[in-house]
């Protein structure tokens, strides 16, 4: 039945509000914090009334952190750039490698294809710390430690399985007949991939790229171990706010707001694709 009685409707509304409050409150609180000084943040009892200040943001942008112990140099903007560069480059390379591979796994049922695909996915299961120690040693010997190249390479562990599995689901959803029809019309295999498969899987590829970007952006452990200050992304760079003279809550909050803004905007913008992409990946996987 479609009809719902008013009490049920009211209860449903309350429940949804509670859930939203629960999940949104931290974000809301962080945004508030980013406009306050450490003193107003730490006063007891906490209050929502304060004079907003742009001090925190100014400090991040200029790179000069004023603490009670003096002025501290921080590289937050550099971190932000690193995040952006590392994530974008990783996703770009992930797409170049992952999309053709996803197509192969979707269309060519070769011997062991399922096993290989699963092995690739299983990279996502292993705790990163498991591979970090050997990786660190290899990277130092190969001279890849503390290079963008090395980080992008390691980021493929995050990005590639994601792209592979989501995009593969999309390719599998394209009826094989549509591709057969294009080939029978006289087009080569490569042309069929470019003119039929790629455009039709477009939304899926976009969703996968977006998700991969967010996952790469949010990564912490790899960069923490493998990169030094000038190559660190924001996730690691935020540690700099834990200073000798105390934790700079205001700047941390501002840093968090700045670092989640791009992914947040992206996620909002492409919400529908994301949900589709995620559920597809989940079902097909």
């Amino acid at each position: 039945m479609e009809s719902v009685n008013p009490i049920e409707r009211a209860l449903r509304g309350i429940a949804i509000t509670l859930v939203i409050l629960f999940f949104m409150f931290p974000i809301f609180w962080i945004i508030l914090m980013s406009f306050q000084t450490n003193e107003t943040i730490l006063r007891m009892p906490p209050s929502m009334v304060f004079t907003p200040t742009l001090e925190n943001y100014m400090a991040l942008i200029t790179g000069k952190l004023e603490t009670s112990a003096g002025i501290l140099e921080i590289a937050f903007m550099k971190n932000l750039f690193n995040s952006f560069f590392l994530s974008t480059a990783s996703v770009a390379i992930g797409l170049v490698l992952g999309v053709p591979a996803a197509y192969a796994f979707a269309r060519l049922k070769f011997k062991g294809s399922e096993d290989i695909a699963f092995t690739l996915l299983s990279f996502r299961f292993a705790p990163p710390l498991l591979v970090l120690l050997p990786l660190t040693i290899y990277f130092q010997q190969l001279g890849l430690a503390n290079t963008y190249g090395g980080l992008i390479w390691v980021y493929q562990l995050i990005v590639l399985p994601l792209i592979l599995w989501i995009v593969r689901g999309y390719f599998e959803d394209i009826p094989a007949d549509v591709e057969y029809a294009y080939r029978i019309a006289g087009h080569s295999w490569g042309a069929t991939f470019r003119k039929i498969a790629l455009p039709l899987a477009g939304p899926g590829i976009a969703a996968a790229a977006l998700l991969a970007f967010i996952f790469a952006w949010n990564n912490f452990v790899f960069a923490l171990v493998l990169a030094s200050a000038d190559k660190q992304p924001v996730t690691v760079g935020a540690l700099a706010f834990v200073t000798a003279s105390g934790i700079q809550y205001g700047q941390i909050a501002a840093g968090i707001v700045l670092s989640i803004a791009p992914t947040f905007a992206l996620a909002l913008y492409a919400q529908r694709y994301l949900v589709e992409g995620l559920s597809l990946g989940a079902v097909k996987g």
């Binding site: 009826p175 007949d177 549509v178 057969y180 029809a181 029978i184 019309a185 039929i196 039709l200």
Partner: peptide
């Protein structure tokens, strides 16, 4: 050859 499919298999885009 030319072929027509039962489910048409038109290129949707």
């Amino acid at each position: 050859i030319g072929m027509a499919f039962q489910n048409f298999a038109l290129f949707p885009h």
